[in-house]
């Protein structure tokens, strides 16, 4: 259904039902933006990556080049 079609149908609704519709859409948006939709409260989200290792990586690369030369 196109938005223009919906708009035409909404226009014909009485004021009270329009307000009900606004409330329903607001609730829908809140649910969609709720973090629990994406993250489980009981879950553990492990992060393994040790960041900022550029210097060590360059050293390891140098070691590798030496060993394989």
């Amino acid at each position: 259904m196109l938005l223009t079609d919906i708009t035409e149908e909404v226009k014909s609704l009485p004021r009270f039902e329009k307000l009900q519709l606004i409330e329903a859409i607001s609730k829908m948006l809140l649910e969609e933006e709720n973090p629990s939709r994406y993250f489980a409260t009981e879950a553990i989200y492990p992060v393994f990556t040790p960041g900022n290792q550029e210097k060590a990586a360059a050293q390891l690369q140098q070691f590798l080049s030496q060993e394989l030369a």
Partner: peptide, 19 residues
């Protein structure tokens, strides 16, 4: 013999390169 300088959360952790 080939020590590595780790950063980030591993800063200060001794490390060596091994093949």
């Amino acid at each position: 013999t080939f020590s590595l300088d780790l950063g980030g959360v591993l800063t200060g952790t001794p490390a060596y390169a091994v093949l």
